[in-house]
């Protein structure tokens, strides 16, 4: 196995991790600030992807598609928050799970209604097709490289938003004591809507960017949603830093597990059963990682309360 192949897999893991971060950031913010567990976050990812594919094929511009994904997911987020989610903040987690589970059914069927049952495709723009030559003889897809860069930029932006700006102060205040900041005159329901829309927009963007690698179809958000749950459980619910570390960890574990485990088992097993065991085990790796983290730290790496 050559070192450049290995490094390429590391980059793939990083790209996957960055994408997971975009998903988990919204999920963990919404949980941290509003105490809401939102299963429909994956639907916002799907809406972003569909909006991007539709606008990109209509206008012919991938970039307009990306903008559309941000807008569509944010708008869908605002509508859902005002109409339904808002009524769930004071309910227990059971009601939140059920209502947002119902929202998934609603959104998935709505997408099938509008766009039909066949998957859509989103083309990578001209300028990002082809590969990039990196040191050590690595040829890496320009598009995937862009996802990594965009993801890192957004992570930096999000951290400075939360630690440097007035909005960030309010979000952090909302996390620690929501009655208090309402008493201090902050319009708490507007803040909630804003946070929800921000999370939704990030999920939509992630959906659009992944949409160009995979196909855009109904149900695409659900596997990612569950991975995002794993990420925020590992990182500690409510912590953006935890989401970033967790996302990178999960991305690398999954990608490298799929790459390394089958060849690892080939050392002492015959090739066909090595592939079987390797692939079965590698699809379970991230859950094993999560279980290990929880045994070690029951409230995640950066979490401080398990409520």
């Amino acid at each position: 196995m050559s070192i450049s192949l290995f490094l390429e897999q590391v980059l793939n893991g990083l790209q996957f991790g960055v994408m997971l971060f975009l998903m988990s950031a919204g999920l963990t913010l919404v949980f941290g600030v509003m105490g809401l567990i939102n299963l429909a976050h994956g639907s916002l990812y799907m809406i972003g992807a569909f909006a991007a594919a539709a606008i990109a094929s209509w206008t012919g511009s991938f970039w307009l598609g990306l903008v559309a994904s941000l807008m569509a997911a944010a708008i869908a987020g605002v509508i859902v928050e005002i109409v339904i989610i808002r009524r769930l903040y004071k309910r227990d987690h059971l009601d939140q799970v059920l209502a947002t589970f119902a929202l998934i059914l609603l959104f998935s069927e709505a997408m099938r209604w509008i766009f039909g049952a066949f998957p859509l495709f989103l083309d990578v723009p001209e300028i990002l097709s082809g590969t990039l030559s990196l040191p050590l003889g690595i040829e890496y897809s320009k598009y995937r490289m862009m996802i990594i860069v965009v993801g890192i930029l957004i992570a930096v932006g999000l951290f400075s938003l939360i630690s440097k700006t007035r909005l960030g102060v309010r979000i952090r205040a909302g996390e620690s004591d929501r009655e208090m900041i309402a008493a201090l005159g902050v319009d708490i329901s507007k803040l909630y809507t804003l946070v929800f829309a921000l999370g939704a927009a990030l999920a939509g963007l992630a959906g659009a960017m992944v949409g160009a690698i995979q196909s855009v179809e109904v149900g695409m958000g659900e596997p990612v949603l569950i991975l995002a749950f794993v990420v925020i459980v590992i990182g500690g619910i409510g912590s953006i830093k935890g989401a970033l570390v967790g996302a990178i960890l999960v991305g690398l574990t999954d990608t490298l597990g799929r790459f390394l485990l089958p060849s690892f088992f080939k050392i002492f097993l015959n090739p066909s059963s090595a592939t079987d065991i390797g692939s079965a085990l590698s699809s379970m790796m991230i859950y094993i990682l999560m279980a290990a983290v929880l045994i070690w730290k029951p409230s995640g790496l950066f979490g401080n309360n398990a409520k």
């Binding site: 749950f229 925020i232 079987d276 279980a291 929880l294 409520k307």
Partner: peptide, 29 residues
């Protein structure tokens, strides 16, 4: 493993274990 946690963590970790079994069933030929 799961009962070490509570609340939302419990919801998500039980979900994740179920997914683990699910992926095992899919990839075990």
């Amino acid at each position: 493993l799961c009962l070490r946690t509570s609340g939302v963590y419990f919801i998500m970790i039980t979900l994740a274990f179920a997914q683990m079994v699910y992926y095992f069933a899919i990839s075990w030929p």
